[in-house]
Nucleic acid binder design. Structure first.
Length: 783
DNA sequence: GCATCACATGTTTTT
DNA sequence: CATGTGATGC
């Protein structure tokens, strides 16, 4: 390669980055802090390798999500063009599926195996528990599936799990584990964990294959290595054993998936796996302002078990971090929405540069409502996957069966969809017959004439099998064609159309489902063959739904935000028990993971960072007082500005009123937004744009029923303000700006009654009007 | 076998 | 709160 092209690849790289790109061969660890340009390093390194004569086929690049893989692919295409095709850039799971599809026969599966997601695997475990006559209360499928999954992530087989089982419970779990694996095999199916595990197993038990892949993937590059689990780590060890050309990139401070088996020590211990691995550290951050980095550094330094490092930026201090404390989650949401309006009116040109993060998906709702109110386009990433919807699962089950008729879970799912008179009783009879004659579920269906059943159910089964027979002939057609035919053959679409024609509340739902089916159809069109369609739909995650370029604010969990960046970031729900989450607070290791999560959240922001929290929050129907997150306390005071309203903080009801004692430097919330607020008020009832906002909502189809009117203020619960006398009451005039302890800022619309009975109607930021007795309302005049 | 209702139940993060 | 499950009645 010419010196020119090399220097083009190194352009705008710093010394360490260049070193990582150029490092010739042998194991390499790039310890890459947040925003330190690791994707740039990875893509340039790949381009450089190819320029050096490495064939694209010899490169395997592993990313964390399909979305990240897509991103990396397109960036490499930009660098080297078509040469890049032929290179494997995928997630661990997708890569394993590709390998398994080729060699499944070697481990007793066929290439058309099904992939069970969590809910399907749990369903199978339920069946096993019932089959073994175990008490389903004592052995909940949820808990057992957790245990089995964790064991698999640690590479335990049923036998080795039994070996270390020390009590009755664990022995029973082992029994379930054994039967579960048998049923998976009978169904020709892998669960998510098996995709990794069985690939390792395949390569370990077939030296020729191991050698072939070791030679084929002469260069291995793995991103986000801190989030690999044991199986993934072993796979890397296995594939890299011969060439030793393994480059892993990661940041142990950003390890946030321990709950599903990830172990950041895989990154720290990489050198013990590949001795004489070269270590390169990237500490310069190109993303965020120094204030944001200082905040992130300060928080993460509270973790005991970590390797010390400090990010720095050349971008200057930038703005301070804004803290806001709201009465409740609706006010918090109103604040976020208002700030977004004001950001978009000035500092930030596109909604796409703004993101709102939260710890749990359930928190999105209040924020969505506030955004809808202000007519701000948004998209929610995560929550329930598109592919988790009922109708999608039904159709996919049929498509799977066309490929893999032994798939018991899919058979059970659709054998009676549409209705074929095969109910619970019939299924029981089929199971019993199978047990008595040692037949798998599918084998009983083939022998249905001999199975004792009501005749209606028997002919239902025959009808089902007949339809499948018909559909299986279409196996080699494009997935879109298959899907169309199956909708016809099963009358699935017809039934929905009928339902949609009928009047009543169901019609709307049916219409909605038809639309969703159309969406699936367009996904099917992107694939040429059934198996590629099935593989990719099985492995897509909610974050893969993220479409770029949309002019919309992004809402997602902090987990979902990994690897992304935005000009402005709102970290909401910064409260004890929520973030750090209740379930993580008692265990120091889990608490440190929460802190890493916080670190990840903070470092997503380029320029503007907001941290918000509330006085009270309603979770699962209960309203609870909330305390500020300990992570807020860990922020150096000189980096933050408190935008909360003084009146609210004066309350002695709240134990932590002294958390931020500095005078706020910023304007009291709302002042800067007055015009924006007035503007949005008129667009509130704009139905057309509202439905746009809902359309952009890609995650689920939750309806936006406004949360019902809030219960009236309960005396004593939160009334930090004393009862007023007549003189004080008379200070309030129509048009006055006030702030309310719970609902925040508002304007007095009218006052009726006299003296101590005066009642004010106040309009709040959420555009709702509420009535208050002036003598007692927890409000305070502003200005 | 299926629809409907009441109740309970469990709720972090996700490849 | 919202979803799922279980019991009841048709």
């Amino acid at each position: 390669m010419t010196a020119d092209r090399t220097s083009a690849l190194l352009e705008d790289l710093n010394e360490e980055q260049s070193e990582a790109v150029l490092y010739q061969s042998g194991p390499l660890v790039v310890v890459a802090g947040a925003g330190s340009g690791k994707t740039r390093v990875l893509t340039r390194r790949i381009a450089y390798l190819i320029a050096q004569g490495v064939l694209p086929e010899q490169i395997l690049a592993i990313t964390f999500t399909n979305k990240a893989a897509q991103e990396m692919k397109s960036r490499i295409y930009e660098l080297i063009g078509e040469t890049a095709s032929g290179m494997w850039i995928s997630t661990f799971h997708s890569a394993c599926v590709r390998i398994l599809r080729r060699h499944a026969g070697r481990i007793g599966f066929t290439p058309s195996f099904s992939i069970y997601d969590d809910s399907e695997s749990r369903r199978l475990i339920e069946l096993v528990i019932a089959h073994l006559n175990m008490d389903h209360k004592r052995y909940s499928a949820r808990a057992i599936s957790h245990i089995i999954s964790a064991s698999k992530n640690d590479m335990y087989s049923p036998a080795s799990y039994l070996g270390k089982a020390s009590n009755e419970f664990e022995k029973s779990v082992a029994a379930i584990f054994f039967e579960y694996q048998k049923r998976l095999r009978d169904a020709n199916a892998f669960d998510f964990d098996d995709l990794l595990l069985k690939t390792v197993e395949l390569l370990k038990s077939n030296e020729d294959l191991a050698l072939a892949y070791q030679e084929r993937f002469y260069h291995l590059l793995v991103d986000e290595y801190q989030d690999t689990n044991r199986a993934q780590n072993e796979l890397v060890a296995l594939l890299g054993a011969k060439s030793q050309n393994v480059c892993v990139v990661g940041d142990s401070d950003q390890s946030i998936y321990a709950f599903r088996g990830a172990n950041f020590r895989n990154l720290l211990n990489f050198q013990s796996m590949f001795s004489n691995a070269k270590v390169i550290v990237l500490n310069q951050n190109y993303r965020s302002t120094q204030n944001i980095l200082d905040a992130a550094n300060a928080v993460i330094e509270h973790n005991e078990s970590r390797v010390k490092k400090r990010l720095w930026s050349a971008l200057g201090p930038g703005e301070k971090i804004k803290i806001f404390r709201a009465g409740d989650e609706r006010y918090e949401a109103a604040f976020v929405a208002n700030e977004i309006v004001s950001l978009a009116a000035g500092k930030i040109t596109s909604y796409a540069d703004i993101a709102v993060f939260y710890r749990t998906n359930a928190q999105s709702r209040a924020i969505e409502e506030a955004l809808v109110d202000r007519n701000i386009a948004y998209k929610v990433i995560g929550g329930i996957r598109f592919f988790d919807r009922k109708e999608i699962k039904d159709i996919l089950a049929y498509m799977r069966l066309i490929d893999n008729i032994r798939d018991e879970i899919s058979i059970r799912r659709v054998i009676n969809v549409p209705k074929r008179k095969i109910g619970a009783k019939a299924l029981e009879a089929i199971e019993r017959y199978g047990e008595e004659n040692s037949l798998t579920f599918y084998e009983v269906l083939l022998d249905i004439d001999n199975c004792p059943l009501p005749s209606a159910a028997r002919s239902g089964v025959k009808k089902f099998l007949g339809q499948l027979e018909l559909l299986r002939d279409l196996r080699d057609l494009p997935p879109k064609k298959i899907m169309e035919d199956l909708l016809d053959v099963t009358s699935y679409r017809e039934d929905l159309l009928e339902e949609a024609d009928e009047a009543g509340p169901l019609a709307n739902q049916a219409m909605n489902r038809l639309e969703i089916i159309d969406e699936l159809m367009s996904v099917a069109m992107e694939h040429e063959d059934l198996e590629s369609f099935l593989s990719s739909t099985a492995l897509l995650s909610p974050s893969d739904d993220l479409k770029s370029g949309n002019e919309a604010v992004t809402l997602m969990t902090i987990h979902g935000a990994k690897g992304l960046e935005f000009d402005a970031v709102f970290l909401t729900g910064m409260e004890e028990s929520l973030f750090p989450h209740d379930r993580a607070m008692s265990d120091p290791e889990e608490l440190e993971e929460e802190r890493r999560l916080c670190y990840v959240g903070i470092t997503r922001a380029r320029k503007y960072l907001y941290l918000t929290h509330t006085y009270t929050r309603t979770i699962f129907g209960r309203t609870l007082d909330s305390l500020p997150s300990r992570f807020l306390r860990e922020l150096p005071k000189d980096l933050v500005v408190d935008m909360s309203i003084h009146a609210v903080r004066a309350s002695d009801t709240f134990r932590d009123a002294a958390l931020f004692t500095d005078e706020p430097e910023g304007v009291i919330f709302g002042m800067g937004n007055a015009s924006a607020m007035a503007g949005s008020r008129y667009s509130y009832s704009d139905i057309a744009s509202r439905s746009y906002a809902e359309k952009t909502f890609t995650g689920s189809n939750r309806n936006h029923t406004k949360a019902d009117v809030r219960r009236d203020h309960t005396p004593g619960e939160m009334n930090p303000f004393k009862v007023r006398d007549v003189d004080e009451i008379n200070l309030f005039r129509v048009g006055d700006k006030i702030s309310h302890a719970r609902y925040g800022q508002g304007v007095v619309k009218s006052i009726t009654g006299s003296d101590g009975d005066k009642v004010a109607v106040i309009s709040f930021l959420d555009h709702k009007e509420r009535k208050f007795l002036l003598a007692a309302a927890p409000i305070k005049l502003l200005q």
